[in-house]
């Protein structure tokens, strides 16, 4: 079967720092990594490949030319083929335009039985592109998948994480799932994988190849715009107390009762 994994290159999370004067992200020297949730998506695709002989795992991303390193990381883990959607015309895309463009890209890749996305990217945190792609392709969709129980070319049975537990959901394929962290532990790339990734030939896709409608891509095709961005006011630490347990307990009890939050 054919599996497509959508990935995004994001700034390494722990290194994100904000310039307090200008209120902007300091991106100097911040390493670009594969969005952590997408690593779970890649790993799950590889696990299905391990189970079902003849499975091909393709990864696709949209971004500037340097996003190819994200594709190479996925290939190093074991993905078979990488597709890079890159074109100036796509700059400034919001989640709608990104979903549209990725859907065009996936269509151009040939038959796909299952599309896997991470539940969200850690920079934008929207969780909107996975369902958006499913909708644009007219495919059924299950979000927040924490376990793939059964899978064939025609159907999949998964556990979907909800607020108070999980649903067991069956979906016909082709279809799309987004996965949460709990689903697996991503493997490390092997040396052999890294070698293969370095020389792997990537498929480049631009606006013309995708026959994307001009009015639906990039800044022009994006319904939403960022009006402004700013650094939230940090909570500054309040009183800090140390001492004997009874004193500490009295302090907490008095504080909590004053908050008037216990029903």
């Amino acid at each position: 079967m054919n599996i497509t994994v959508c990935i995004k290159q994001v700034p390494g999370t722990t290194q994100v720092k904000i310039n307090p004067e200008t209120g902007t992200l300091i991106r100097d020297g911040v390493e670009a990594v594969v969005n952590p949730f997408d690593e779970y998506a890649i790993e799950e695709a590889l696990r299905i490949k391990d189970r079902i002989a003849g499975t091909i795992v393709k990864v696709i991303t949209m971004g500037p030319p340097q996003a190819e390193t994200a594709l190479r990381s996925a290939i190093a883990m074991g993905a078979d083929k990488g597709y890079l959607i890159t074109d100036r015309a796509f700059a400034g895309s919001d989640t709608w335009a990104t979903s549209y463009t990725l859907a065009r890209g996936i269509k151009a890749m040939g038959e796909t039985h299952l599309i896997i996305c991470g539940k969200q990217a850690i920079d934008g945190d929207t969780a909107q592109v996975g369902p958006g792609v499913a909708e644009m392709l007219g495919l059924p969709f299950v979000a927040w998948v924490r376990k793939v129980e059964e899978i064939s070319e025609r159907a999949i049975r998964v556990e979907r994480l909800m607020e108070e537990g999980y649903d067991i959901v069956e979906m016909s394929l082709p279809g799309l799932i987004t996965v949460v962290k709990e689903i697996n532990t991503p493997r490390m790339a092997s040396l052999k994988g890294k070698m293969r990734a370095r020389s792997a030939k990537l498929v480049m896709l631009d606006a013309a190849t995708l026959q994307a409608e001009k009015g639906k891509i990039g800044l022009t095709g994006s319904p939403t715009q960022v009006l402004r961005s700013f650094v939230p006011e940090r909570k500054s630490g309040g009183e800090k107390v140390s001492g004997e347990v009874p004193q500490l307990v009295d302090k907490i009890v008095a504080t909590v009762l004053e908050l008037n939050v216990i029903k």
């Binding site: 945190d125 592109v129 958006g132 607020e163 994006s222 319904p223």
Partner: peptide, 20 residues
């Protein structure tokens, strides 16, 4: 879990601008 699952599909279909 429900809202963030299906509302993006609605936005994609009606070409609405969705802020998460």
């Amino acid at each position: 879990a429900i809202g963030r699952s299906f509302i993006p599909k609605v936005a994609a279909r009606v070409y609405g601008g969705l802020t998460a």
